[in-house]
Design a protein around this nucleic acid. Structure first.
Lengths: 336, 336
DNA sequence: TTGTAAGCGTTATCAA
DNA sequence: TTGATAACGCTTACAA
């Protein structure tokens, strides 16, 4: 492996001069710079980020990305955004799929500290995460995606989930639905809370009754969607539509409905949330609320690197706007 | 941040003693070791892998994972396997989603070199990849997943794709199908080549004709599946089943078929390959050939770290066995 | 069994 | 504008 010293020898200058040339320092002659750069290229030199990071007291040039499940297309898309921007800026991304396991989360955190990452993007925080407090107090900057903490002042990029919830339910109401159910995510996620708020606001604004027996919080999983929808069916309470707080839940709900002989959308309309890749698959074609998830990841990486490199104190809090995507799982209710 | 020196001071020993205690060296007294470890824990010490890697002449404790598309559930699952094992062994995983872009691939490679990764897992090699040759000549060990090079002697873990192709087509033949089409992946991927070989072998063994106009290679994408299936339909050649070289292609094919008024599986049976998460979604329920993809990632990470840490020369070449998963997209042909 | 000192590849400070 | 030198935090001969 070529080092800065090899180049120095070859160029007949000192190592410090080489360093300056390569880092575009202003304290160097134009001619020397060009010569050194040429030689470096010829010798196929690659900077050793370990050494550089060590002496500069910074990391190796890497971001940590903590997500609950990479097999969920939502997080896959987020990851793409983060990675694209990070790579463009010369940073690597350490992926930490925690699978909602506290043990894995801890282990990954230790890992990140040891590797001296320059920033952490967290896409799995709960509203009052004790672990988050710890992270936030450490010296490495963090950025929350799509979920926020109600207790801590942190950087975040999210979508206006109240608005998103409104979009979904307004669509249903416009179609003529009145008996609308809701299946939410975990009630300690801000995203789940806000989507429900949006749901309730629209119902109230239209003078529609909210039937508590078909409104619930569960997990953001297909299984939860299946179970809750089954429960709703067995309760005999009539409903003609369900707003599901994410697409995976919606898929589970559709599965349960169809298993029971109900047809979507003829018998019941379904709206999801996220617009993950599943949603546009043939045979699925889910009506859903779309988040600019790739962009969120891309921007998060950029902001975090900016904060880290320039040691900015000011916090970044950005809220983007969701959009309704109408496909084939919603239509007018039969009776309406 | 606590350093080894802080601990040394606190424990009233030298830094080297602390290092020895923490690394479980044998050149140290049991008592000192315990004392040092206790103090280290109390001071919440985390080793700086940059410094450690630098002096040991190794990497920061990280693997690079190069894949074509993290939004493809196949690679998401692979990533989970790699990451789980790597994290367990104290390694991080740098994710490199290249999106089949040579530019991104190059950029990522430079990144990995600078970060001094300890090994690279490559899940996107073609049969005679020039870039692979370069990588293979460098000092960092590499491992190929699911696709191999026919030119280079490299480490790899893959599935027996000829066998997998056989499984798919035998299932179709047993059902009574005779006019069977094939939509393959890129013809310079070993996986695509082998699956086709399996297809052809079974056809020949059963004395079934191979109709070239419904046998083709394309991309491993939904769009390609859609286009090829559309082309087959328009050719007016009769077929009652298609073996698709991966699940995404299968999805595209189903879409095209149904758009044309054909019903799956009543009119035409479809078999996919990979058993990605899409395949088991309600309304999809694709018959497919399953690969132990998580395990492949898990084992790859383990082997690579083993090679790196023990500087093994012997190469690892492992072939796993695929399995047929019958769901709802295959059945007897109408006429049969 | 422990301590001293050198060195990994960079960057930054100071002097020239 | 350049060079010598120290330093980043750790490991490892070598000496004690």
């Amino acid at each position: 492996m070529t080092t800065i010293e090899d180049i120095a020898e070859e160029a007949d200058v000192s190592p410090s001069t080489v360093s300056r040339a390569l880092n575009n320092s202003s304290l160097i002659g134009e001619e020397t710079r060009r010569k050194v750069k040429r030689i470096a290229r010829e010798m196929n030199y690659k900077k050793n980020d370990l050494a550089s990071g060590l002496v500069k007291g910074v990391g190796v040039g890497a971001l940590g990305l903590i997500i609950p499940n990479i097999s969920n297309p939502y997080y896959a898309e987020l990851t793409r955004g983060v990675q694209d921007r990070a790579n463009e800026l010369g940073y690597g991304v350490f992926l930490g799929d925690t699978e909602a396991s506290l043990e894995k989360e801890r282990r990954f955190e230790t890992l990140l500290r040891r590797k001296k990452v320059d920033g952490i993007i967290l896409a799995s925080a709960t509203v009052n995460d004790p672990y988050l407090k710890e992270l936030n107090n450490s010296s490495v900057p963090i950025m929350l995606i799509s979920r926020i903490s109600r207790e801590l002042e942190t950087n975040f990029i999210k979508v206006d989930d109240i608005k998103g919830g409104r979009l979904a339910v307004e669509h249903l109401v416009e179609l003529g639905h009145e008996k609308i159910g809701f299946i939410g995510g975990p009630d300690d996620f801000s995203s789940a809370q806000d989507r429900r708020v949006g749901f309730e606001k629209v119902m109230k604004e239209h003078g529609l009754p909210i039937n508590r027996s078909i409104v619930s919080h569960a997990q953001y999983t297909q299984e939860a969607g299946h179970n809750m929808a089954s429960a709703y069916i067995s309760k005999q309470d009539k409903f003609t539509a369900i707003f599901c707080a994410n697409d995976i839940i919606a898929l589970g709900a559709i599965e349960a409905l169809e298993r029971d002989g109900l047809v979507v959308p003829e018998d019941v309309s379904i709206v999801g949330y996220d617009n993950i890749s599943y949603a546009s698959l043939p045979r699925i074609m889910l009506t859903t609320v779309s988040q600019p998830i790739y962009t969120m990841g891309y921007d998060a990486a950029e902001s975090l690197i900016d904060i880290s490199e320039n040691e900015k104190e000011q916090s970044i809090q950005r809220e983007l706007t969701p959009k309704l995507v109408v496909r084939n799982t919603t239509r007018k209710p039969k009776s309406g």
